[in-house]
């Protein structure tokens, strides 16, 4: 068991898979000569050369399409977006081509590729560089969407995604790259898709989250313990395919749910989860589901305003308390929006 940074875990995953399979290659802005905008791919061009680690121009639509073409003729490309906000430039390629090529060609062409990079905010990168994109990509049939919140999950899940024959949206977070954690060693450590991670067992309320927000959820659970509220915290990890069984098993135990996401609420994944839970576990609900989400505003630049738009341990804990509140009790509301 080694203790390494999240970024190193991603690097090791890519290196091991490129060593294992010649067809795996990496392309993106600054991934080669610069050793990666966030040093994720440091050393990979030195090791694998310019034919397997490609520096691309600032042309997301172009190199995304190029990667799809490579996949259609037998390679297994990894595409790095400097942030997922820039994938919007390649949105047509992803939605209309990568997601649909297998279906429209009746399987004659497939797209075994991983699109990866950081999303989310909290670094004062402001409105156009702080978005969460999972809702847009989960909505489109044909794409898998995966998140990782710890170095171990990053390595295990990325390796699984690279070996998977489907096009996969792999969502990292700038706030996680420095995070250190224990990672099992060995080139065969993988984590399957569609399996959530129960971070903490509990009995009174279920808190669902993923990516960086799961860490705030775990802190919220600790705050709730002081009030003798036992929260169960689940890191969903892969959003599609979703581990619905784990979610429903938890709901049947606690009968109360809080969903915490950095992303916006309207047509967001938090609403998706709510809908699924009400649909499949209606008779188990003892309180309405509470969603704690990013505020419905373009991400502000000012540090204090930015902090107000993102859920934190306090607001998540308050949401849990609201599910347990009784008539006449003060139901805490700490969000300003």
């Amino acid at each position: 068991m080694a203790v390494i940074q999240y970024r190193e875990a991603l690097r090791e995953a890519m290196r091991e898979e490129m060593e294992r399979d010649d067809r795996v290659c990496l392309m993106g802005e600054e991934v080669g000569g610069y050793n990666g905008a966030y040093r994720i791919s440091e050393g990979l061009m030195d090791q694998f050369g310019r034919m397997r680690v490609l520096d691309t121009p600032i042309a997301e639509e172009g190199f995304t399409g190029m990667a799809l073409g490579a996949a259609m003729v037998g390679l297994r490309p990894i595409v790095e977006y400097m942030t997922w906000n820039f994938s919007l430039v390649a949105f047509d390629m992803i939605i209309n081509h990568i997601a649909k090529v297998r279906y429209m060609s009746d399987g004659q062409f497939t797209a075994p590729m991983v699109l990866r990079g950081p999303q989310g905010g909290g670094q004062q990168l402001t409105a156009q560089h702080s978005q969460c994109v999972e809702a847009w990509y989960i909505h489109c049939p044909g794409l898998y969407v995966v998140t990782a919140a710890t170095p171990a999950d990053a390595k295990g899940l990325l390796k699984t995604c690279i070996r998977n024959d489907n096009p996969i949206i792999f969502l990292e977070h700038l706030g996680l790259y420095n995070l250190k954690g224990e990672v099992p060693e060995g080139p065969d450590f993988t984590i399957p898709l569609g399996v959530a991670d129960i971070r903490k067992q509990g009995t009174d309320v279920t808190i669902l989250s993923y990516s960086k927000m799961i860490h705030s959820a775990v802190q919220a659970a600790e705050l709730l313990e002081r009030d003798e509220i036992s929260a169960e915290v689940i890191d969903l990890r892969s959003l599609r395919p979703l581990d619905l069984d784990a979610i429903l098993a938890s709901v049947r135990k606690t009968h109360r749910v809080v969903i915490a996401t950095e992303a916006w609420q309207d047509s967001g994944f938090s609403r998706e989860l709510s809908g699924l839970i009400y649909q499949h576990a209606f008779d188990e609900m003892d309180a309405p589901i509470e969603e704690v989400t990013g505020a419905p505003v373009p991400m502000p630049y000012a540090k204090n305003l930015e902090a107000m738009t993102i859920p934190n341990a306090e607001t998540i804990a308050d949401a849990a308390r609201r599910t347990l509140a009784r008539s006449g009790e003060f139901a805490p509301i700490t969000r300003l929006v």
Partner: peptide, 10 residues
């Protein structure tokens, strides 16, 4: 009911 708004809870 002792839930919010007089809702009957478990």
């Amino acid at each position: 009911g002792t839930g919010p708004g007089g809702r009957i809870v478990k």
